[in-house]
Design a protein around this nucleic acid. Structure first.
Lengths: 195, 195
DNA sequence: ACCCTGGATTGACTTATATCAAGCGTATTT
DNA sequence: AAATACGCTTGATATAAGTCAATCCAGGGT
């Protein structure tokens, strides 16, 4: 009995439309609750990302491992975010990413085929998808700009003001990796910014 | 009499659907041809991006200027690409970007309100939008990963294999800025990679 | 044909960030 | 409660890339 209310609320809020009872039953029929314990993997590099997950509770990171064995975090995800490697999910290609629970994680997951169904059947769902797509495009554009034009310190300040929750929920070395910094550099940077 | 055929072909190819004669007339009614000479601006920082443009001919760059007066290129665009600051275009906020023609440029441009109309009225157009949205998401994910985990040299090689046209069409200092490098660094990097 | 501008290259030097290594405190496991 | 692992900090050093400056070359404009 996972909490579908979080998903319903989210869809209605983002789309600005209401879900009918039929809509809700359709969603409940094919979104499957899944629980992962901290450290468990939602997706492993090399596997196809068959499911997209809606985070009801907990957090996760999406990361790659380079040839030298260094990890790079591309995404940190919290409640009410979607979890997937979209490239693999859309194209059914093996993923280059790992997605790992950073805290005990509850998701509602569904397949691409089923999502396509929802897009056709549920107006609120399709409206939500359009809004999300816009938001992603905007967020990506911003993050890309930040990565290219900002100094490490500016990127950190940006994160502090835009995602203050991250500081509460994720250890500093994860934040560092997300910002493209070594943990040492982030530590020093914070110390210096007090002056 | 600008060339709408390029736009029609593009929509049909990406969407996998055909445009009816009515569809085409609708598109021709509200996409306005616009020509810019090299160096002219499609969008200036501080203005709202009222139009989205489909590039029929020519090229452009999207860039910011930081406090030190340094330019950072976020996007290089060629024929059959869409030109806009999506954040400003969707939200009607003043743009933080400049979009400048790098070669004489022919676009077909339209407003957001009109695009919404097309999405409702023209099935091929709406299918195209979904495909583009997927492609953008995938491309952004890749570029972000490249920016975070790759060395300058790997990013350059990536560009050489994925966008070889860029090397033909854009001067090296623009490529450098797009890769987040100084022109000097790119020059040296190319020299060394011969060894 | 000439000038002039923009782009590319090269050298010398500076700076930001990574790397390696050690030490410390706190939470987690058993 | 002891043992262990994890995360954070700090110092010393290395490295990649940026900056500044000079030169050279080619193409476009007059």
């Amino acid at each position: 009995m996972s909490n579908f209310e979080a998903l319903f609320d989210y869809i209605q809020e983002i789309s600005g439309k209401l879900l009918s009872e039929d809509d809700k039953h359709l969603l409940m029929a094919h979104f499957k609750p899944k629980k992962l314990r901290k450290r468990q993997y939602f997706l492993q590099e090399g596997d196809v990302c068959k499911y997209i997950g809606f985070i009801v509770k907990g957090s996760a990171r999406t990361f790659t491992v380079d040839e030298k064995g260094h990890e790079h975090i591309l995404k940190l995800s919290l409640e009410n975010w979607w979890l997937a490697d979209f490239e693999s999910f859309y194209l059914l290609t093996p993923s280059r990413f790992n997605i790992e629970a950073l805290e005990d994680l509850e998701v509602l997951q569904s397949t691409n085929a089923q999502i396509e169904e929802y897009l056709k059947q549920i107006p609120a769902f399709s409206a939500m998808a359009n809004v999300i797509s816009q938001n992603y495009t905007i967020a990506n554009q911003k993050r890309m700009q930040a990565a290219m034009s900002y100094t490490a310190e500016e990127r950190y300040e940006d994160l502090v003001s835009n995602y203050p929750q991250f500081l509460q929920r994720f250890p500093q070395n994860m934040i560092a990796s997300y910002l493209g910094l070594s943990p040492e550099t982030l530590s020093r940077l914070k110390k210096n910014s007090f002056k």
